[in-house]
Design a protein around this nucleic acid. Structure first.
Lengths: 148, 148
DNA sequence: TATTGTTATACTCTATAACTATA
DNA sequence: TATAGTTATAGAGTATAACAATA
């Protein structure tokens, strides 16, 4: 799958192409790094989102991640099955499920974050520390934008 | 789908998350910009790859794009159906299809590139010109790497 | 035997529509 | 009526396996 001969100048300046393959590579490195912990890349995203705004409803967590609430269901099913998150009906509004990290979930998140940081280091290896910080900041500025 | 409330500090520094959503947004802007020309984002990628190394076999074009040769078939079927590329058996090796842009394909590529540049400008709007160049260069350095 | 294009098929990720239970 | 979670289903996008033609 990984391009054996580098793309030509036209394609290699195209942002859709560059972002697609950068994401593919980063996701691949993350998957590899997380394998020992029995966690998938998307599951780390859910744990991170929950850690940010815990306790949250499933819908809030989904919005935070930018995915549909129906997609969140299966993700949480898997994490709950592994004992990493818990679901309880909200006291005041019993339509909602309050989702929280279990202690095991917090431990897993800590370990997964370390592994993820290693994968990011490998991904960023071709860049100077300044360029790496610049990349992260640029992506943040583009992705985390005020309600469009 | 677009995150209505911004992610918290943990998630919003995660490179997989940032790259995924940056790619989603750039792909969406490109799709919108290309609609008037009847070309899809992935098809522009194929046209670009062909323009870089024309004339190429289907397999060479697929490698250049980092996709499977079986995926390339349907992509080229569509482009050939629109009259933008032509396929001919290679003279010396008749297993291969030589794929070339037609004149209509070259025209379409020119127009699509202009539209794509507009989309990139909108995507990069939150960044200074220097930061935008830095982002493109950083992605190039990471994606276009010597045979891993 | 190996390679190119092709087809059939399956898998992953995702969303839309419809159901339920609550509000 | 409207919302949260769920389920069933469908549509992208992709790859793997197998086949025909050619090398």
């Amino acid at each position: 799958m990984s391009s054996t001969d580098g793309p030509g100048p036209g394609l290699s300046s195209n942002l859709v192409y560059l972002l697609k393959h950068a994401h593919l590579r980063m996701a691949e490195l993350t998957t590899k790094a997380l394998t020992p912990y029995g966690i998938e890349g998307r599951e780390l995203g859910v744990l991170l989102a929950l850690a940010d705004l815990e306790p949250a409803s499933q819908q809030q967590a989904a919005q935070r991640l930018g995915i549909d609430r129906t997609t969140m269901v299966a993700l949480l099913d898997a994490l709950e099955g592994k004992g990493l998150v818990s679901r309880h009906p909200h006291a005041d509004d019993r339509r909602r499920n309050v989702v929280e990290l279990t202690d095991a979930g917090k431990d897993a998140l800590r370990l997964a974050l370390k592994a993820s940081a290693d994968a990011e280091r490998e991904f960023l290896a071709p860049l100077s520390p300044q360029a790496a910080e610049g990349l992260r900041n640029a992506l943040r500025a583009i992705v985390i934008r005020p309600d469009p």
